[in-house]
């Protein structure tokens, strides 16, 4: 997956034989083309368009174009916006905390400490687990009566009542965020570690000669050198976290009281519980616009400060 994060290597252009190459390229593309057009490009466009219709479940119901009606209704829909707010809190907290935690771990794994092979392997495990299993596992861990987390808290006298982390209004979102961090850490760690290993050792040696301390080396060499990798992985994490579904669906299904109702869950319910496909697609449209605006802003700022 790491290969996906860094830009694909530039290929030197061959100036000769271009027309022939184009034809050959098309030939190589063909097997992929039909499925991609049919099942990816077309659904994408159709999905966007669906947001402007009143498509809904029902036997022999007609769908008609309704312009911006859905969006006008969405503006009035407090529940959608509150789910949006939750989505933003979730996305930002998970992405940022995950990044900080992963950077720490990557730095540790990049030192010459013992057992780092074992540590590295263990650290990757969450990545290999299906999100549904992760959710089940954390439900066991956070269970109010026979979960170990409550047991530990009570033994240490930090709480006198068992806390139903996933069922309590105050703790549900933070608990879900912790699980989100847990799931996403390996990926971020591996990427950052790869970035760290790519940094030229001689930069540090030169800095050490100049008498720079560990912190100064971190701020002046490590972070600037990692910048591209950091921007790439945090952007991807942002997108993935904003669009995440399975984990929270199984952990809380949006409860208690909608406190963990991520926008994806909200839109899913609108479509597949209440049968309002057009409205759900409109929600999806809003999500896309927000993601794109956000990313554009983030990437522009990052890249500009890099230049």
């Amino acid at each position: 997956m790491t290969a996906t994060i860094t830009a694909p290597p530039e290929t030197p252009v061959r100036k000769t034989g271009r027309p022939k190459q184009n034809r050959e390229a098309i030939f190589l593309f063909l097997p992929a083309l039909l499925p991609v057009l049919l099942l990816s490009v077309y659904p994408l466009i159709r999905g966007i368009a669906l947001g402007f219709t009143d498509a809904r479940a029902g036997l022999n119901v007609d769908t008609s174009f309704v312009g911006f009606d859905n969006f006008a209704k969405l503006l009035q829909n407090d529940l959608f916006w509150s789910s949006f707010r939750i989505g933003v809190i979730w996305t930002l907290s998970v992405t940022i905390l995950q990044f900080v935690a992963a950077l720490g771990l990557a730095l540790l794994l990049n030192t010459d400490i013992k057992f780092r092979g074992v540590a590295r392997t263990l650290a990757l495990i969450p990545w290999a687990m299906p999100p549904v299993v992760v959710a089940i596992m954390w439900r066991l861990l956070l269970h109010p009566t026979n979960g170990p987390v409550n047991e530990v808290l009570q033994t240490l006298n930090l709480t006198d009542q068992p806390v139903n982390f996933l069922g309590d209004f105050g703790t549900a979102l933070p608990a879900v965020i912790v699980v989100g961090i847990w799931v996403g850490m390996p990926m971020t760690t591996v990427t950052l570690l790869a970035g760290l290993q790519g940094i030229d050792r001689s930069l540090y040696e030169a800095a050490a000669v100049d008498g720079a301390g560990v912190w100064s080396q971190f701020w002046n060499i490590t972070l600037p050198q990692l910048k591209t990798v950091i921007v790439a992985i945090t952007s991807l994490d942002l997108i993935w976290n904003f669009n995440s579904f399975g984990l929270v669906y199984v952990l809380t299904a949006g409860g208690p009281g909608g406190k963990t109702m991520l926008p994806m869950l909200f839109a899913y319910n609108e479509a597949f519980r209440y049968g309002n496909f057009g409205m759900a697609a409109a929600m999806g449209d809003v999500m896309v616009v927000i993601i794109i605006v956000f990313l554009a802003f983030y990437l522009r700022n990052r890249l500009r400060s890099q230049a």
């Binding site: 098309i26 030939f27 063909l30 097997p31 083309l33 039909l34 499925p35």
Partner: peptide
């Protein structure tokens, strides 16, 4: 081109 299209269709 045609063959490939057919192949994809067949899939």
């Amino acid at each position: 081109v045609l063959t490939a299209l057919l192949a994809a269709g067949a899939l």
